[in-house]
Amino acid sequence: MSIDPAGLTRRFAALTTAHVADACLRAGVAVRCAPAGVRPVVAGGRVAGRVLPARHAGSVDVFLEAIDRAAPGDVLVVDNGGRTDEACVGDLVVLEARAAGLAGLVVWGLHRDTGDIRALGLPVFSLGATPTGPQRLDPRPADALAAARVGSWTVGPADVALADADGVLFVPADRAGDLFALAESIRDTERRQADRIGAGESLRAQVGFDAYLAGRAEHPGLTFREHLRAVGGAIEE
């Protein structure tokens, strides 16, 4: 699947994962977030790129093989089963990824060499750090380079990884353009609402909250989300 990495980076630069997650919700696309424990190692790091999956079995060779077949702008997504007893990625893998033109890494597991990784500057998101590397060597799965699991989600090259200070989100690559357009609309609505709050008009007034309460009293099944859609507000999605 052809993905324009420069275009992804450019459009995501003016958005957040929250905007895109809200767009997924509005478009009926599954909101696939990495668990909240997956956090940026490099402060201010942002990632947007095609998923390059790799399932770790105790040896670094799977990462080198994945990087060997990567395209510039890909995001190495490492599946180490969410383990917290070993680090599966260190500075040399991150350095190799940077040299190959990757956009960053998402690790469903731990990293080490934190200081060196931060000095390299390539965005890395992981569950945290520990000093020890793997002390095992398991059989390598046949699909080790085909898909990666992050939390409850399985992702692969047909997906795009987006990450920022709020966390990591995966979206289908073939829906990314539409989702970005919708996210931009949500962002612009929220900015207008924020400006109006700053000018003294409460959010409750903007979204007709009194009307919502009256409508809910008459129709108990009315949800606030339905009301927001009717009035063009953006808070929840």
Rank of each mutant, 00 (worst) to 15 (best):
R83C: 10
H56F: 12
L25F: 12
P141Q: 10
L203R: 09
A165R: 14
G115I: 10
A142N: 12
D159F: 05
L182P: 01
G221H: 10
V107R: 02
G198K: 14
D74R: 11
G156Q: 01
V155C: 09
L222P: 03
T9F: 14
V51G: 02
V94D: 00
T17M: 05
A211R: 14
A142E: 13
P35I: 00
E86N: 09
D113E: 04
A176Q: 05
E236S: 12
I3L: 12
A142W: 09
T130E: 05
T16L: 07
F180H: 01
R55K: 09
R216Y: 08
T16N: 05
A234P: 12
P220G: 05
A199T: 08
R187L: 06
R39E: 07
I235Q: 07
G198Y: 11
R136K: 13
A119E: 12
L213T: 08
V29T: 15
G156H: 00
S2P: 10
G128I: 04
L105E: 00
L137E: 14
P131S: 00
A173G: 05
V77G: 00
A129M: 02
S152P: 15
L203S: 12
F125Q: 01
V77N: 02
R69C: 09
L92V: 11
G198F: 11
G90C: 06
D4T: 07
V93Y: 04
G177N: 07
R187G: 08
A87C: 04
I117N: 01
T130K: 06
V160R: 02
G233Q: 06
L127E: 00
L203I: 15
D113F: 02
T189E: 11
S185W: 09
A205E: 14
D143H: 11
